[in-house]
């Protein structure tokens, strides 16, 4: 590449990088600033303090919300991987009546917009008595159709010899799945795990509908309600502090597993 265009690339990239990074930096710095200094372009202030965070912690049980979110998302992720792999295994390596039918149904459900089922789902939760319980947050997310498809796709490529050999040793299907397939499927497990975790962690609409008690609220829900429910008393810096608290856990996870995140999210698109 010639030098001139190279410099040009770096300039545009730096500019682009700023567009994406600066708002976050600005937000982070604003959370430490007193309310009056927010209306500034710069990041520095002589009056940095933790006051805004103190306000958030005093007003809403955000620590509890964090634990709720972790609990709910972990359950959803764990079960999405378990059930996804079990069903994926069945659909890829077992022959039974109705297999093609189930596969067809799975593909069909992927085109149903959730808009149709949202309201009946809520009513279902009401009838089950699951409103304001963890069950309503976890159970509907326990199986991910997309996860099933990803597992199925991946398992199709594992050689049949491995299964046959295991069968001769007297392994059951579950044993084959967990002892032989799992060690080979790290990438797809990570992908399904990250997708389910992200989906569950960032979901707001569903918790907003099924959970009304503060003790069970997930973190994004609580921050949303802190913002729109008037508890923030239009104090912008504390709203931003709440938002920052919501962003921090996932950003930390992202910092460690950045590559996996990007790859997983990219497969969402490519496999569709």
């Amino acid at each position: 590449m010639e030098k001139k265009s190279r410099i040009w690339v770096y300039i545009t990239m730096t500019f682009g990088g700023l567009i994406f990074a600066y708002p976050f930096l600005w937000m982070l710095s604003a959370t430490f600033k007193p309310e009056m200094e927010i209306a500034e372009i710069g990041l520095m202030s002589a009056n940095f303090s933790l006051d805004n965070y103190r306000v958030v912690f005093n007003k809403i049980p955000i620590g509890r919300a964090l634990l709720n979110s972790i609990f709910v998302s972990s359950c959803v992720t764990f079960s999405a991987v378990m059930f996804g792999s079990i069903v994926g295994y069945a659909l890829s390596r077992l022959r039974f009546w109705g297999r093609e039918l189930i596969l067809g149904i799975i593909l069909f459900t992927m085109v149903i917009p959730f808009q149709i089922t949202l309201i009946p789902m809520y009513i279902l939760m009401v009838k089950f008595g699951w409103v304001d319980t963890y069950l309503s947050l976890i159970v509907p997310g326990m199986i991910s159709t997309f996860g099933i498809l990803l597992f199925r796709q991946f398992f199709l490529d594992i050689p049949q010899d491995l299964i046959d050999a295991a069968r001769i040793d007297g392994c059951s299907d579950l044993a084959i799945l967990f002892r032989i397939f799992f060690p080979l499927s790290k990438p797809v497990i990570i992908t399904v795990g990250i997708l389910s975790f992200m989906g569950s962690w960032n979901d707001v609409l569903w918790p907003l509908i099924v959970v009304r008690v503060r003790e069970l609220m997930t973190m994004p829900q609580m921050v949303t309600l802190f913002k729109v429910g008037g508890q923030a008393e239009s104090q912008i810096s504390s709203q931003l502090a709440a938002a920052a608290l919501l962003a921090i856990p996932i950003v930390i996870v992202y910092a460690f597993f950045q590559r996996y995140f990007i790859e997983s999210m990219a497969t969402t698109g490519l496999k569709n």
Binding site: R212, V213, R214, F226, V228, G229, G230
Partner: peptide, 8 residues
């Protein structure tokens, strides 16, 4: 005592 769960 419990505050009404915050909402709009």
């Amino acid at each position: 005592m419990q505050p009404i769960p915050a909402s709009q």
